[in-house]
């Protein structure tokens, strides 16, 4: 690796660090129940819940499994499931 002068870093380069491996519980969105309000996306500390069509989807490469999305979902459309089950 060539070191940059003064330890500069490229924008958004933490993307190389896949924090999905931190997860114990995995949020699963029930697409049927999802009303597409975006609350989960707004509160996600990783910014890893994105709008797909009129619903939302989670990028599990980065989701740390904190569970804020499930806790805040106004229609309880997200379930936290133990990883691997």
């Amino acid at each position: 690796m060539k070191l940059s002068i003064g330890a500069m870093a490229e924008p958004g380069s933490t993307r190389t660090n896949k924090t999905g491996s931190w997860r114990t519980f995995k949020p699963i969105i029930n697409v049927e129940a999802c009303i597409g309000c975006g609350t989960c996306s707004m509160f996600c500390p990783e910014g890893t819940i994105c709008k797909v069509a009129d619903k939302y989807a989670i990028d599990y490469d980065y989701c740390k499994g904190c569970g804020i999305c499930a806790h805040e979902c106004p229609v309880k459309a997200i379930e936290m499931v133990l990883e691997g089950e």
């Binding site: 330890a7 500069m8 870093a9 924008p11």
Partner: peptide, 11 residues
């Protein structure tokens, strides 16, 4: 660019 990053013992 980001300036003034935290540098670990490795570098």
């Amino acid at each position: 660019l980001s300036f003034g990053t935290i540098v670990y013992p490795s570098t």
